[in-house]
C-alpha cells in the first residue's frame, strides 16, 4: 500500500532521509520508530505530498506521490506532528470545514461528522470551541479530522506525544478500532514500547537510514531482550544459584533483592529448563518470569551503534 524506493531528501548538506526503502502491506499498522531528528517527519511529509524528494520515489496505493498528488490526497489522512487548529471554530464546524474541503456534499456532511465524532468519542464536545479542548481531546479531534473522508491510508506523526497515560491508551484503542476497519496505518514515534502492542511491523530509522525492519516478534531475540529471567524461590537461594550457574545454557546468575536474575547465553531462550532443574533439586519455585521487556533499552542499543 505504501512503498518507498531509494527515497532520499537532502537539506543543504544534511541528508535527512537516506536511500530509504519501505514496504507496508494493506491493512497493516506500521510503526516508524527513531530518535528525534532521524527523518521520520520528513519521510511522512514526502508521503503526504507536502515535500518533494530529492531522489527516489514514494508510492501510495500504486500512485506516485509527486506526480499524482491530487489523487493521493484523496486516499490519505495525515496528522502532522504539531497540529494547529482553527481556534475560533467549534468542533463540529471544524470537522465540517474539512468535510467541505474534501468536497463532500452538504447533505451528507452532518451524518459523516456525527459518525467520526462518535468514533472518537467527542460527541459531547460537539459545540465546544476547538481551543478549549485538552491536548488529548485535540489529538482525538485530529484523528476525527483525518477520518472525515474515509481514507484508505492513515499517516500519523507522533500522535501520542505529549499525552498523559490515559489519553495514550485512548488513542491506542482508537487505532486498534481503525485497524479493524481495514485501514493501513503508518504511525511514528520515538518510543518503541509505545507501539509494541499495536504494530504488526516496525521500521527503525536513524540518520535517515533504515536500521531495522520487521515484526516486533522478530526484533526481540535479535536484540537479546528475551534472555533474562527472574527466578523467585521459597528458600535455599544459595543452592539454587549454584545449580543454575552450572547449566551450560546460562551465562550469568545474579542475586538481586529477593529474586535471582538469570541471563541466558546468546540465542538461547529456555525458561522451561530452569523450572525442571530446580524442581528436580527439590527447591520450591515461587515464580519464573521474563524480566520486564526493556524494549526501549534495546532500541537505544540498536540506534547507538550507528554514529555518523
Amino acid at each position: 500500500m505504501i512503498e518507498t524506493k531509494h527515497l532520499t531528501k537532502v537539506f543543504g548538506n544534511l541528508t535527512a532521509v537516506d536511500d530509504l526503502n519501505l514496504f507496508i502491506k494493506q491493512g497493516d499498522i506500521f510503526g516508524f520508530i527513531g530518535p528525534n531528528g532521524a527523518g521520520k517527519t520528513t519521510t511522512m511529509r514526502i508521503l503526504v505530498t507536502l515535500m518533494e524528494p530529492t531522489r527516489g520515489h514514494a508510492l501510495i496505493d500504486g500512485l506516485d506521490v509527486t506526480r499524482n498528488g491530487q489523487k493521493v490526497r484523496r486516499i490519505i489522512g495525515y496528522m502532522p506532528d504539531f497540529m494547529g487548529v482553527y481556534d475560533d471554530l467549534k468542533v463540529f464546524e471544524y470537522l465540517e470545514f474539512f468535510a467541505a474541503a474534501f468536497g463532500i456534499e452538504r447533505s451528507k456532511r452532518k451524518s459523516i461528522v456525527e459518525g467520526v465524532l462518535e468514533l472518537t468519542d467527542l460527541q459531547s464536545k460537539k459545540s465546544a470551541t476547538v481551543d478549549s479542548l485538552s491536548r488529548g481531546m485535540q489529538q482525538r479531534l485530529g484523528l476525527a479530522r483525518v477520518l472525515i473522508h474515509d481514507p484508505k491510508v492513515l499517516i500519523l506523526d507522533e500522535p501520542a506525544s505529549g499525552l498523559d497515560p490515559r489519553a495514550r491508551i485512548e488513542i491506542r484503542e482508537l487505532l486498534k478500532e481503525l485497524k479493524r476497519m481495514g485501514k493501513t496505518i503508518m504511525i511514528s514515534s520515538h518510543i518503541l514500547s509505545e507501539l509494541e502492542e499495536i504494530c504488526d511491523h516496525v521500521g527503525i530509522i536513524e540518520h535517515g537510514q533504515l536500521v531495522y525492519s520487521g515484526t516486533i516478534e522478530e526484533i526481540r531475540p535479535r536484540l537479546g531482550i528475551h534472555t533474562k529471567v527472574r527466578v523467585q524461590v521459597l528458600d535455599n537461594q544459595e543452592k539454587a544459584i549454584e545449580i543454575l550457574a552450572a547449566l551450560p545454557q546460562i551465562s550469568q546468575v545474579q542475586l538481586c533483592k529477593n529474586y535471582i536474575s538469570v541471563t541466558f547465553r546468546e540465542g538461547e531462550n529456555m525458561d522451561g529448563i530452569i523450572a525442571r532443574t530446580l524442581v528436580n533439586a527439590n527447591i520450591d519455585v515461587v515464580a519464573i518470569q521474563p524480566e520486564q521487556l526493556k524494549l526501549d533499552d534495546a532500541f537505544l542499543q540498536l540506534t547507538k551503534g550507528i554514529v555518523h
Binding site: 507536502l50 490526497r73 484523496r74 490519505i76 497540529m83 494547529g84 482553527y86 474541503a101 468536497g103
Partner: peptide
Amino acid sequence: ARTLPILLVTPL
C-alpha cells in the same frame, strides 16, 4: 498556527 500543512493535504 501550523494549519497550512493540513489544508494542503486536502484536495483543494
